[in-house]
Design a protein around this nucleic acid. Structure first.
Lengths: 185, 185
DNA sequence: ACCTGAACACCGTTCAAGT
DNA sequence: ACCTGAACACCGTTCAAGT
């Protein structure tokens, strides 16, 4: 990548971070280009699609969550590990208002720039779930797809201003429902 | 209301029903007016806001759910009544893709045309919940606001094509989490 | 190689002008 | 009273023209 291109790329990413923090996942791409004082075509050249932009914005978070899942895979309590990881992925989605809907759509769209990351997150969650199930502390009538869907639902709750105050409490309720009663958290 | 106005009102409502069924809650109002072969201003005259249009579209459903809640208030099992009603309100939201987010926003917006109906739905759910709690079959650390939020989350799940196949199963999981273990459904 | 911004096809919302 | 549609201020996306 040419030096000036690289500069624009980084600049756009920084401004996008700000604008998305302000306006959520459906922020205006035009606005981002405008604030970055860059042609609209430049934004499209670097991020040909909205998903591509989010992939770049979230890459760091995805990496961290992936590593965290690996670390938690050997934790003493598989149930606690699962819940701790769920809490983190919900928090990340919550940090990017509205992005959860984009992620959920991407999991069914192989061509989305977010597809691989979302599949990886789903797989990581599945591994933690399966381990807790093997341990006997997570209910067995749930699979990775269910878990991914519940993460979506919990993140969505946090995205709605009217519901956000309940999000933490409802996280406990839902997380509790995933665990078998002997190890309720 | 003048006869021609009334005709336009009904016409718009019918077309809106179709268009919203096709495109969900963020359907184009312009498109509705166009398909109804009516000036865009006419649509705005009858439905000054998107919420006003949805209020008109959903009024029948809200009425039915309200009556159903009254009927269920004397059902033998308060727990079953609660779950049955939850299933119905989630189904109604599901029938109008995307409308749940509008409803959730309206509950915090006293000026929304949907506000009263949403408050009524929340209150109806709360009554069924309280009765089940009194009966000892619903957990006591949940209130009406939590219930409304969970309805939102469950309806949202059904709205996402990638998650919809899991919506029924997850409804059971979440509904089960609301009940005390002695009466798991 | 990369950047720019006009062009196109859409929105939601308002409001002067018509009947 | 009611209807119409142009006008305005926005979008996302593409692409010819520039450097």
């Amino acid at each position: 990548m040419r030096a000036d291109a690289k500069k624009n790329y980084e600049l756009l990413l920084g401004i996008a971070r700000e604008v998305v923090a302000e306006h959520g996942a459906d922020a205006s791409l035009r606005d981002i280009a405008r604030r970055a004082e860059v042609g609209l075509g430049t934004l499209y050249r670097h991020f040909p699609t909205r998903d591509a932009l989010f992939e770049a914005l979230l890459r760091g978070g995805f990496d961290a969550l992936g590593k965290e899942a690996v670390a938690l895979a050997t934790a003493e309590s598989a149930a606690d590990a699962l819940v701790a990881w769920l809490r983190q992925i919900v928090a990340m989605a919550h940090a990017w208002r509205g992005v959860i809907a984009v992620m959920v759509a991407a999991i069914d769209a192989p061509d989305s720039a977010l597809h691989a990351s979302c599949v990886a997150m789903k797989a990581a969650g599945t591994r933690l779930l399966v381990r807790a199930q093997a341990e006997g502390t997570a209910r067995s009538d749930i699979d990775g797809a269910d878990l991914f869907a519940l993460v979506g639902a919990m993140a969505w709750l946090g995205d709605q201003p009217a519901l956000a105050p309940r999000a933490d409490h409802l996280f406990s309720v839902i997380a509790g429902a995933l665990l078998t009663s002997t190890s309720a958290t």
